[in-house]
Design a protein around this nucleic acid. Structure first.
Lengths: 158, 158
DNA sequence: TTAAATTACGCAGTTAACTGCGTAATTTAA
DNA sequence: TTAAATTACGCAGTTAACTGCGTAATTTAA
């Protein structure tokens, strides 16, 4: 039988293909940290960088900056606290807010992780042959799908 | 604080952004089916199309066609069987293989789903302003990452 | 013609996002 | 100055892929 059916289905498989590439990168990054004996999870890098760069930053601030839901960030920061990479406290100006600081452990490890991610960015740039249009496409898709969802767009056509 | 940090991080967030767009599409498609009262899951469309188009098609064939692992396909087909969309039997020429056929229920529903996905493809094309480079980028990334993983590419640079 | 290798399947558990919903703290308006 | 609305957090459960590992069927080679 033909193994080209995915390509025959063309844009219809865009969703699963986006997810697959994302998963491949994430699983592989996780594996790389393991090989290097670094005890952190891939996306913690993003959070550590944010916390380092901002004196006061809350769960919701991080969520907004990364485009995650606050619940996802909450789960992530809880794990980072448990593993000794973050300290949390209440913002004295607004007791509803939890704010974060780096521990010595994360200060110590950050330079190495930064080095890894500098190379990581190089690798991605090479894979894309230095064409960054894909980011623009993702920007547009996110913006547009936030305005009107994929399903609702189909429904209006039916 | 600045909310532009994601863009500052540029290509470093590619992985999470790919996943996010994929998730958005998948959750929304799921929701759309619910609104239409159609009792199927988003990716079943791909499997139904494959089974319809091939007289004899096995779990591993489907996996290869869609780029999924056979285990993922197995999970999916089991659910489809349970919900009455597929019938499975053993390939008489190779008793190791499970092969699939459509039920009357899926024959009945397929035209409607096909219509939905024709529009779905239109929506995606519109979101991308009819530029299909993103598929080429995804092709390249998948091929390259299969040859040498993301993590291993970083490790060779360290 | 049996032992070893390969292929196919399927179960159990994992991953990183998600949604839904409830509670606590703060702000706004009658 | 209290009632209603908003904002922030966090728990529980879901999603669609994944990996790991074991077993059954088939094929290959000594």
């Amino acid at each position: 039988m033909s193994n080209d059916l995915v390509k025959d289905l063309g844009l219809r498989t865009l969703g699963t293909r986006l997810k697959r590439v994302a998963d491949k990168m994430s699983y592989s990054a996780r594996d790389m940290y393991k090989q290097l004996g670094i005890d952190i999870e891939p996306n913690w890098y993003l959070v550590l960088t944010l916390v380092k760069g901002n004196n006061i930053i809350s769960t919701v601030d991080i969520a907004r900056s990364l485009g995650f839901t606050h619940q996802s960030v909450n789960t992530m920061t809880n794990r980072m606290i448990k593993r000794g990479y973050l300290i949390s406290s209440k913002d004295p100006n607004d007791l509803r807010k939890t704010v974060f600081n780096l521990t010595q452990k994360s200060e110590d490890i950050l330079p190495e992780i930064e080095k890894i991610w500098n190379y990581g960015e190089e690798v991605i740039a090479e894979l894309l042959h230095n064409q960054k249009e894909i980011l623009k496409h993702l920007d547009i898709m996110e913006d547009e799908l936030n305005k009107l969802s994929f399903g609702d767009r189909i429904l209006t056509k039916l």
